[in-house]
Structure formats: structure tokens, C-alpha cells
Design a protein around this nucleic acid. Structure first.
Lengths: 240, 240
DNA sequence: CCCTAATCCCGTACGACGTACGAGAATAGT
DNA sequence: ACTATTCTCGTACGTCGTACGGGATTAGGG
């Protein structure tokens, strides 16, 4: 299934990984599938967090022996890349383009946010791993580039904009998730508040003290995201 | 040194971690120090990457037994937070503020970028870990809030801007580092190029094909960073 | 001055992890 | 039926984070 060529230092040849779907003409028939294994890993990460994704647990979920997984992915890092591309499939089909590139870009970001909220391990996974452009990721990237067609940006700049919108969304969703986790644990939240109050009272952080003394804004995460996204996208200029 | 209170689920009480520097009045004298251990961990990460930072290797660097580290940090996650705050000390003293908040914000981002290039594990560490605001991080945050004083932003919005500037910088530096790593390995770079060429040739990704067919811009990473940062900061509006 | 309580040092050990190895089972072409 | 190929997976190795607890070192109180 995966030719073990080694490939040198720290990575798998993307052609070997994403192309080459032809079944070999001889040999035992595979008892599992890459998609099933990936889906099991995703389900595990959704339910118990990314740290629960171990080769042993994924294997037991799909009913395979541990070492059988290595017929479908050469190592765990690759399995994580497969997971990212797998959930990116949920972004298809995207909303049709309107021709208003700012609105289209915002729709793209909102779709990404919804995806990341559904799979809370995704923001971290996106940041850590070297981008491995699987078919689903490529399809969405193609869509984003099409959305930017009305702009005067050149190819490289379009790619940068997409990368930054994704990073922006990942950052805000990660904060949103962390905030929710904190709220869910009153003990930790109280400890954090006590610490910040102590810092604010030490006299060396007047700006922070003032920022914290203001009444918290009663905004939903959705509204905060929408506001910051609007600000960011509206600030983008189509020139150069 | 660190009171083992347990503190429930998944985190250490920040007050226990960052405050409480008073030496106990009885008992054996510490043979090492938190600062020395943290510095050794940072040196290890700088030289061999974040994965080289294991309790065993850090201990051997400082000449301690492995378990001695646990007198100075309750677990490895905490040691990583100490590392982040430790290198953040290199941001002090920051450039004095000019009163032009856009220029000051850009200077802040450039300082962060320089720090991240010096410590390539930092972008990833910043994204993964829950923010643990140690003294050095707090000092820099205070500086950033002061830079934003001329704006009309409220406290929460200032914090958001700082978070997004940091995330923006981390993303670009991470890409920059990945790009450098790719360039350093011609074999991997060629494999990547071959894969993208195959995708562009499949006819299903016309926008991507066009974006890749354009001649690569001969810009240094510095210039790219400065250009995108300018665009982002200039797009920020001081109103709400 | 010794006794006691506090604190730190760290050798040993445990369970979990990623995965190399290779023997056995299943398949397809000859 | 034989053989080459491919997949399955039990066993095993090295490494990781860290719980446990006994010994060493210190300061205060009698």
C-alpha cells in the first residue's frame, strides 16, 4: 500500500502518499482501508482529544493489530496528516462564490471556524505539522484562490492571504476552545483570576490592570470572531 | 520548591508557579536552580529541536539526576512554559514607544520575529501551550498595551490585537523556518515540486496551476514579513 | 550538642509509546 | 500446484514521563 522508500530525512514523498491508489495485482487483499483507519483516528481525537490518538488505540478501534496500521500509513505523523485532510473533506462543497471577494473570503473563514469547532484538535494540528496538501485540502485551496480572482494579487500573494486567514481562524478558535475549557473548570478559572488580580495589584502593570478592570464585554464568541474577521478582511487591500 | 497541591485537571496554579519565590527556612539547600534548568532546556531546544528536550537530557545537561528536575517544575509541560517565559526575557528592554501606535506595533512584531528566529521551537510552543503569563511575558504584554494606548480600543480589544499580532508573526516565522528547512534538503524540495506539478497538470486545479506558474518573487523573508505586517497593521482601525 | 522536622537528591521501576522484525496467511499469475 | 507478492500482526526493543521512597543535608528547639 505504501512503498517504504525511506525518503531520507523527516517526511514522506507526497506523491507516494496522495497519488498511487492503484491496487497491486498480486498478494493478499487488504482487510482494512486507509479511510476507515483515518476516520477512526478522527473519531478518537474528537471524543478524547488528540493525545488519545495512539497507534494502539486506533488499531483497536478498527479491529486491527497495531502493526497492521503501518500498511496504510508509514508512520504516525503521516496518519495525523491524513486526519487533517480527511476532515477538510467536510468543507466540500463550499458555498458558491458571489464575486464579492471580501464576502467570499469571510465565508471561507466561517466555514473553517465551524470545522475547527467540530474538531477541536484541528487548530493545533494545522499549526504543528508541515502542510501536506492532500486532495481535500487542495480542493479547498483551489476554492479560496478562485475567491481571490477578482483581486489584483499575484499567485504568491493569494497563497499568503489564504495562509493568514487560516492562521487567524485557527488562533481565534484555539482561544475560544481554551476559554470554554477554562469556564468549564471553575477551580482553574478562579486560580487564573486570582493570579491576574495579584499581578494587577503589584503596581508594575498599570496598563494590564486597566485592561482587566474594564467590564467584560458580553459578546458571544461568534460575534467576536465576526467582528475581528470583518476588520481583518476589510483592511486587506486588493493592490499589490 | 513547588508545593505539590495537585490542583485538579490539567494545569498548575499560576500563583504557585510564578510567585512564591521565598526560600523555605529549613531543609537541604537546592543544588540547582529553576533558571539554570530552564536555560539548559532552552539551549537544548535551540541546538537540537524541541523533541530533544526530554527530562533525561535536560537533567544530564545540568548535571542533575532526572528526578531532581521535579523539585523545580512539577512536570514537563510546566518546564516548557518556563522555557517560553525565559526566552521572552530577551524582549526586554523593548524599544521605547514613539507615540505612533502603528509604528510601535510593527516594532513589537519585528522584535517577536527576531526572537522566534533565534528560537525556532517558539512559534510551535506558543501555539500549543495554554498561555501561561510569566513575568517576562507579562512585561512585554504590558509594553504592547502601552503601545496601544493612543488607540480608542478598549481593554479586551487591545488584548485581542496583541494576540493576533503574535499569532501572525508566529505563523509567518513558522513558514519561513519550514521553507528554509525545505531549501536545505534538495531531495525533499524536489519531491514537493514534482507533486505540485503533477497536481497542477491534472486539470482540476486551474487556479493553483496559475498561481504556481507565475515566476517566484525574489523577495527575502524579511521583506515579505515587513510587507504583510504593514498591510495588516495599516488595516487596523483605531475605532472600536 | 543532639534531636527532629523539613527539604532536596536521585536510583529504581512501571506503564505507555512508536515502530523494527519477521513468521505466517492469503492472493494472483504461471 | 508452485511461486512471487502482499498483507496481518505477535513479539520485542528502546525511549519516554514520572510515582515511589530511602538516604543525605539543612535549620531550629531543647
Amino acid at each position: 500500500m505504501v512503498r517504504g522508500d525511506g525518503s531520507g530525512a523527516g517526511g514522506v514523498d507526497p506523491q507516494q502518499l496522495w497519488l498511487n491508489s492503484d491496487r497491486p495485482r498480486k498478494g493478499r487483499k487488504p482487510a482494512f482501508s486507509r479511510a476507515a483507519i483515518t476516520a477512526a483516528a478522527v473519531a478518537l481525537a474528537d471524543a478524547e482529544g488528540i493525545d488519545a490518538v495512539t497507534m494502539r488505540r486506533v488499531a483497536s478501534q478498527v479491529g486491527a493489530g497495531v502493526m497492521s496500521l503501518y500498511s496504510y500509513a508509514p508512520d504516525k505523523e503521516t496518519l495525523l496528516q491524513l486526519m487533517v485532510d480527511h476532515v477538510s473533506g467536510e468543507l466540500s462543497p463550499p458555498d458558491p462564490l458571489t464575486g464579492d471577494w471580501r464576502a467570499d473570503l469571510k465565508a471561507i473563514a466561517h466555514a473553517q471556524r465551524a470545522l475547527m469547532l467540530r474538531h477541536p484538535w484541528l487548530p493545533t494540528a494545522l499549526f504543528n505539522r508541515r502542510w501536506s496538501l492532500g486532495p481535500n485540502t487542495l480542493a479547498f485551496l483551489e476554492h479560496a484562490l478562485a475567491a481571490l480572482r477578482p483581486t489584483a494579487l499575484d499567485g504568491g500573494a493569494k497563497l499568503e492571504v489564504f495562509s493568514l486567514i487560516t492562521a487567524f481562524t485557527a488562533r481565534l478558535v484555539a482561544d475560544e476552545i481554551a476559554q470554554a475549557a477554562l469556564s468549564a473548570s471553575p477551580e482553574r478559572a478562579a486560580a487564573e483570576a486570582r493570579y491576574l488580580a495579584a499581578v494587577a495589584a503589584d503596581g508594575h502593570h498599570p496598563e494590564l490592570a486597566e485592561a482587566l478592570s474594564a467590564p467584560p464585554r458580553p459578546l458571544t464568541p461568534d460575534a467576536t470572531f465576526a467582528r475581528l474577521l470583518d476588520r481583518m478582511v476589510d483592511g486587506l487591500d486588493a493592490g499589490s
